[in-house]
């Protein structure tokens, strides 16, 4: 048996989601936008879930949003034990200013201080070489030391 430390789970890169993960690796946040109805779409889809159009483009939305709901992750369930050493941490539903919703960890603030209404912005955290995921940090506060 391997004695290696557990690693965080990595996404499965597919033809659909490759533009997102390529941009994320550069710490750039891109999402799909429907060219017909103009809505921003998260997570990546094969067609617009609002109007059905397949005419989608990748674009950089505003990177700010507002916490809609939050919780504090304290135990690993159905995920890699690698997260354990970072617990407890806040996980929030964030409603982005461009009208889409995304889940993520909120870092740079005490987990219990993350509440609905908190304004946050997108940042990135590297999970492995060449793989980064969005996280959130509070707006108007100093980032983590």
């Amino acid at each position: 048996m391997s004695e290696r430390q557990p690693e965080k789970p990595l996404p499965e890169v597919t033809p659909l989601n490759k533009p997102f993960w390529d941009a994320a690796a550069r710490h750039e946040f891109v999402v799909q936008r429907c060219r017909r109805c103009g809505r921003f779409i998260w997570y990546p889809r094969g067609s617009c879930p609002y109007c059905g159009s397949r005419d989608l483009e990748w674009t950089r939305p505003r990177e700010t949003g507002t916490v809609y709901a939050s919780t504090i992750a304290r135990v690993v369930v159905g995920n890699s034990p690698a997260w354990e050493k970072e617990m407890p941490y806040a996980v929030a539903i964030v409603d982005m200013d461009d009208g889409f919703r995304i889940y993520g960890r909120v870092l740079g603030i005490r987990p219990e201080d993350v509440r609905p209404g908190l304004r946050v912005r997108i940042d990135f955290e590297d999970l492995a070489s060449g793989v980064a995921v969005p996280v959130f940090r509070p707006l108007g506060r100093a980032p983590d030391p």
Partner: peptide, 8 residues
């Protein structure tokens, strides 16, 4: 978009 983002 959930497990790598730290959701359980």
């Amino acid at each position: 978009y959930m497990r790598p983002f730290g959701l359980m």
